[in-house]
């Protein structure tokens, strides 16, 4: 199936429409909450959370024996949260530095997840098909039921972002000041971290645990280059997220045997690269031209 047929099919074929809808939701939610994560300098926490969610999915499957998108999401959230709490515990109670704490949780939880996954593979349970797609993502496995769950959870997350807009902005910019104004910053911090966990977990089926962190970072990092307003940055990030989601899904579903995650990530990183170079004001090209101009001016002004 080529590109053009794919786009034609998009509007006619039920399955493709489901998949595209799902990736749009994923892109918008991860772009929006990724903006918070990137601005809070928690980019790599996303990487740890996404890897840490794998055992949760596997354990839920071992318990129930079939595939249930909602329970998988809850399992992933639970194990992502446990990972996050352990990271905080290591940071607060030991002399181990935070990046090491991230690395420990990331690899250990992922290792455990792989053990469980390979164990499940040996089970004579036919229902296990599909768990592997959580590693690198497989958009084609998205069902309407998945998309509805993603939309509801994502919609609630976005609503919370809107509702606590000014509080979130204040927390990221100046948490101590927020506290002196009387805001409960501990609550806000937990709220924001939970939203980021939800955003990551929503993308696991499509992008996979290994690469989901890039979908948190890339759209936001690209959007930052085009604007100096938080609201605009979030809108652009959501847009970039959706675009890379659609592009990645289109390419991967039109190619045989292609996991969706890597293609979506490459699309997103490609947008980042374009933004780094061509964004007005901040972009490298703009800066280069500016220094050239300055040098020229300098030559023309007599000392």
């Amino acid at each position: 199936m080529g590109w053009i047929e794919f786009i034609q099919e998009l509007f006619t074929d039920y399955t493709s429409r489901t998949v595209i809808l799902g990736t749009i939701v994923l892109g918008v939610v991860s772009g929006t909450l990724g903006t918070f994560a990137v601005l809070r300098k928690q980019s790599l926490l996303g990487d740890a959370i996404s890897h840490a969610s794998l055992p949760g999915i596997a354990i839920v499957f071992l318990l129930i024996g079939y595939k249930d998108p909602l329970l998988f999401l809850l399992g992933a959230i639970a194990s992502g949260v446990i990972g996050t709490l352990w990271i905080r515990g290591i940071q607060q109670n030991t002399a181990i530095k935070s990046d090491t704490a991230l690395g420990i949780i990331l690899t250990v939880f992922f290792g455990l997840g792989i053990v469980l996954l390979t164990y499940i593979q040996r089970l004579p349970n036919a229902n296990q098909a599909g768990l592997d797609s959580y590693l690198f993502g497989q958009a084609a496995t998205l069902m309407m039921k998945d998309v509805i769950i993603m939309s509801v959870l994502g919609g609630i997350s976005l609503l919370i972002v809107l509702l606590f807009w000014k509080e979130h902005k204040l927390l990221i910019f100046d948490a101590e000041y927020a506290q002196t104004l009387g805001f409960n910053t501990r609550f806000l911090d937990i709220l924001m971290t939970s939203l980021i966990v939800v955003a990551i977990v929503l993308g696991l089926q499509t992008v996979g645990v290994v690469l989901m962190s890039a979908m948190i970072i890339a759209p936001a990092a690209a959007a930052r280059q085009w604007t100096n307003r938080l609201s605009v940055m979030i809108i652009i990030a959501a847009l970039f997220g959706a675009v890379s989601g659609i592009a990645g899904t289109a390419i991967s579903t039109s190619t045989k045997n292609m996991a969706t995650g890597p293609v979506i990530v490459l699309a997103a990183v490609f947008i980042v690269a374009l933004s780094f170079v061509f964004a007005p004001n901040r972009g490298l090209l703009f800066r280069y031209i500016n220094t050239l101009k300055k040098r020229k001016n300098h030559e023309h002004t007599p000392n």
């Binding site: 990137v38 300098k41 890039a214 970072i217 890339a218 990092a221 292609m258 995650g261 293609v263 490459l266």
Partner: peptide, 21 residues
């Protein structure tokens, strides 16, 4: 253009994705 942790988080997924593809 971005903070350090974001730079790490952009580079390796890209290269890894190329490898997987």
């Amino acid at each position: 253009l971005v903070k350090e942790d974001a730079a790490i988080g952009l580079v390796f997924p890209a290269l890894f994705s190329i490898g997987v593809i």
